[in-house]
Nucleic acid binder design. Structure first.
Lengths: 109, 109
DNA sequence: ATTCTGTATATCGCAGCGTGATATAGTCGA
DNA sequence: TCGACTATATCACGCTGCGATATACAGAAT
């Protein structure tokens, strides 16, 4: 899958997809990602099993992540270069969002 | 609809829902929201008609927004107090996201 | 020994959302 | 009068996140 198509299909990224890829800042397996997401969101976000394994399968199919190691009871994934490009793109979008939050937040107080 | 239920149902907010509510920092009608979203996102985000009118109907039903004026060809909406509470909640979440972007962005360069 | 908690993955159907297409209609300038 | 823009409404489609369900191994406690 070409990178333009990937960006189109994955933007705007859901919070779930974003935190899964963020967790792959280092190689991790599904369950490890669930725990890492809980950690960085202070237990706010708890991913369901259907979410994590479904998303990982889809992301691997699309070339955003790849199998790093397949241990007996752990499938460890890492992010690909296309996945990193996608994340940089998404982080730019989040920056825009943050700027607009700062600009308009007074209207909602 | 009670505020806890609203927050649960609308979190995490989609980018679309967020920019619609952000546009209601002042009273606006559907088409005006579409144009305002294009403006604040530098033409990146163009809401489809199905998105805007469907979302506005749903938000009004849930008490997040309310009819401000019903002119001949313009239905103008404004955000309610519950809608403002929801936005403050969402903005807090976006802050968390932004902090994590800053923390991990080096891993994707 | 058994039971409970935690680790680990997979699949299914449900509900919700964003979207483009389609329809309708008024306005204003070329 | 023709096109571009304003303005709203509804429909079916595809995708996503989710909880439920299933399976299975490990270690600790009773």
């Amino acid at each position: 899958m070409i990178i333009e198509q990937i960006i189109k299909n994955y933007s705007p990224m859901t919070e779930t997809a974003f935190y899964i890829l963020l967790s792959l800042s280092k190689p991790r397996h599904g369950y490890g990602i669930i725990k890492h997401v809980e950690e960085v969101t202070n237990n706010r976000l708890k991913l369901g099993s259907g979410t994590i394994y479904g998303t990982l399968t889809k992301m691997e199919r699309d070339g955003i992540i790849t199998m790093y190691a397949d241990e007996k009871r752990k499938k460890i994934y890492e992010i690909t270069d296309d996945g990193k490009t996608l994340m940089r793109h998404e982080m730019k979008r989040l920056n825009e969002l943050y700027v607009n939050v700062a600009k308009y937040k007074g209207a909602f107080e």
